[in-house]
Simulated scan of single mutants.
Amino acid sequence: MGLLEQLNQDMKQAMKQKDKEKLSVIRMVKSSLQNESIKLGKDSISEDEELTILSRELKQRKDSLQEFKSAGREDLVKKLEVEINILQEYMPKQLTEEELEVIVQSTIREVNATSKKDMGKVMSAVMPKVKGKADGSRINKLVQQHLD
């Protein structure tokens, strides 16, 4: 089942259960997906493009969450945490630290990286491999640990 079909089913379920938060998030994601397909001039978008949109939405909320926490806006923090949890239901299973470690080490060997100067090369090679399955900041920390 594609993401759009899943969202439609979950939207119907959220309407029946009167789950306003979930309904709001689902509508927002559907809107983002439709806007992207219009922007690309396509009737439908690929799974990879869907994942990119979901990742972008999740990252925006995580960034906002940090801002609201530092500003002491607990009301908005709670709302965003609920939205993040709902969005994560649609993301692929996240990689464990061990799985990420293996991917990072093998990529460092693939691109023959030896120092922190090669960080960009490594990051650009790792990110497509873990798209949607790991946060960029986690990967960045691991790459930095392995490059001296």
Rank of each mutant, 00 (worst) to 15 (best):
N8G: 01
L40W: 01
K93D: 06
L33C: 00
E57Y: 08
L51Y: 05
L147P: 00
A113W: 01
N8Y: 12
S124D: 12
S137D: 14
D135G: 08
V143L: 02
N35H: 12
L3A: 03
R56Y: 14
N140F: 15
D43P: 00
S32G: 03
L33R: 10
N112K: 13
S31P: 09
L33W: 00
T107A: 09
L58N: 03
E99S: 01
S44V: 14
V102A: 03
L23E: 09
S70I: 15
L23S: 02
S115F: 12
K30F: 00
Q34L: 05
A14R: 06
D135C: 11
G136S: 10
L54Y: 03
K78Q: 13
Q94K: 15
G72H: 07
R138V: 11
G72P: 10
K39N: 08
G72K: 02
L3W: 03
K93A: 09
A113S: 06
M123A: 02
L142Q: 03
R61V: 12
D43R: 02
S124H: 06
G136M: 13
V130S: 07
V122F: 11
S46N: 04
K79Q: 09
A14W: 10
T52H: 11
S55L: 04
L65C: 07
Q34A: 08
E67T: 04
V77C: 09
R138T: 11
S64T: 13
V77Q: 09
R73L: 13
K39S: 15
S55R: 10
V143I: 14
D148P: 15
S37Y: 04
K18Y: 12
V102W: 07
V82W: 12
I38P: 11
K78F: 00
R61G: 15
S55E: 08
R56V: 07
V111S: 06
D75S: 06
E49W: 01
Q9Y: 14
D148F: 13
V122E: 05
E83R: 11
K78A: 03
K30L: 00
V130T: 07
Y90P: 01
K121Y: 12
